[in-house]
């Protein structure tokens, strides 16, 4: 009820409503985006982009799903668009992927560790996150939403606009692929 009022106020262009939405949801959006991008700077940029999109397209939100589900969808779509753009840039312009506009190196840090990881799990989490990057897009999204954001299968299904069974299958396949990749690349090399 309160949330609906907030959305109505935002639809009328009230800045205070927008501020309230950003203040209360910034953690959720940032966490989701960070889980998918695995880069703190990019996650900050893309999170800002998500809220700009929310501000500009709030009229498209018809209330058919919960606002948080819609927000997760916007966050996931924006993060995936960013990743695709990055991949395209890398493929077609190797030089620009190495150097940014100010000739600063822009290569990704290879050893991203999520800031929320427990200290004794850091090394394992680093391995897992690096391997998650290699998963197919939909498996990556489902796995990240479930593991990093802590969403249930039901909630992941709503965000991805699919069935719970499909999400179960995606996460199962993601686990199998991760196991195989970890086995091939890390366990064997130990």
């Amino acid at each position: 009820m309160v949330e609906q009022l907030l959305i109505d106020r935002l639809k009328q262009g009230e800045e205070s409503a927008f501020r309230e939405i950003v203040e209360t949801r910034q953690g959720m959006v940032y966490n989701t985006v960070l889980g998918l991008l695995q880069n703190a700077e990019d996650a900050e940029d893309v999170s800002q982009e998500v809220f700009i999109k929310v501000f500009e397209s709030i009229h498209q939100f018809k209330g058919e799903s919960a606002f948080s589900t819609w927000l997760y969808r916007v966050a996931v779509t924006t993060a995936l668009e960013f990743l695709r753009k990055k991949k395209r840039k890398k493929r077609f312009a190797f030089v620009t992927s190495l150097f940014g506009e100010n000739n600063q190196p822009r290569h990704d840090p290879a050893d991203f560790v999520h800031p929320g990881v427990q200290l004794d799990n850091r090394e394992n989490a680093r391995l897992l996150l690096a391997t998650i990057k290699k998963l197919p897009e939909n498996q990556r999204v489902a796995f990240s939403l479930h593991k990093v954001d802590g969403l249930s299968y039901q909630e992941v299904a709503q965000v991805m606009e699919t069935t719970v069974a499909a999400v179960e299958s995606l996460i199962h396949r993601a686990r199998q692929n991760l196991k195989k990749m970890l086995k091939d690349h890390y366990i064997e090399s130990r």
């Binding site: 953690g27 394992n124 990093v148």
Partner: peptide, 26 residues
């Protein structure tokens, strides 16, 4: 067992938060 340990390493993950003054930057 090592694999299972790695796969479970994100369990109980704490939420990350953006740097302060996010709204001002936005």
């Amino acid at each position: 067992a090592d694999l299972e340990k790695i796969l479970a390493s994100l369990d109980g993950l704490e939420k990350a938060a953006p740097a302060p003054f996010f709204f001002t930057r936005l």
